[in-house]
Amino acid sequence: MLARRIIPCLDVRDGRVVKGVRFANHEDVGDIVGLAERYSAEGADELVFYDISASPEARTVEPEWVGRVARAIDIPFCVAGGIRSLDDARARLFAGADKISVNTPALENPDLVDALAREFGSQCVVVGIDSRVVDGEWQCHKNTGDPTKMSMEKRKTRDWITEVVSRGAGEIVLNCMDQDGVRQGYDVEQLSVMRELCSVPLIASGGAGAREHFRDVFKAADVDGALAASVFHKQVLEISALKDWLASEGVEMRT
């Protein structure tokens, strides 16, 4: 049986892993390769590296560290942040990334999703979505790495998920912004709604603070994976212990 995935997310700024609260006030939490190796050894199923400075500053991910990570670990990883073209994606995939994730650039140029899927296959095209309730509807936001440039898109999250899947996205990472970094639990309500209309793997992001939060999002929202950052960086939860406990609660895990 297919296991649910536990996915540490490493927010990268200037080659270091950082973590903020509600997308601001970032603090340094460590070296990229060191953390990647630690999480891989502890039983992470996959890693996501998100260059949070990339989109706002209109620059792309530095592929140099992608190769260093790819050499060091033997689990899949995804690189996100500022990928605006086929060339940007190709550089990261050929440096050893297994997937690339697009967020703001897809909102600005939806055809990018089609082009990426055609060129590299849907299996490596992830669309990241930052979503929160505005005026009673879940809405997409862009440039969320920089509070001064962050803005709301005129797109409903549910419409955008349907659109990018039809354009060839192979996986959706739904970051529920109101929960991000505050460790009060995943947005099970929003994720459950999006699960119903998302025909590709759906990854929950934002809000993990305790092992029960993982159990609840897998059982109640039926997501394929759960992404988390601060609970792992701050060593609130240890990954192998978390996975053992989830398995004992009846969640299919790779242990």
């Binding site: 297919l2 995935r5 199923d45 025909s199």
Partner: peptide, 10 residues
């Protein structure tokens, strides 16, 4: 069994 494609640890 779940969404398409088959993605993850089996």
């Amino acid at each position: 069994a779940g969404p398409w494609p088959h993605m993850g640890w089996n």
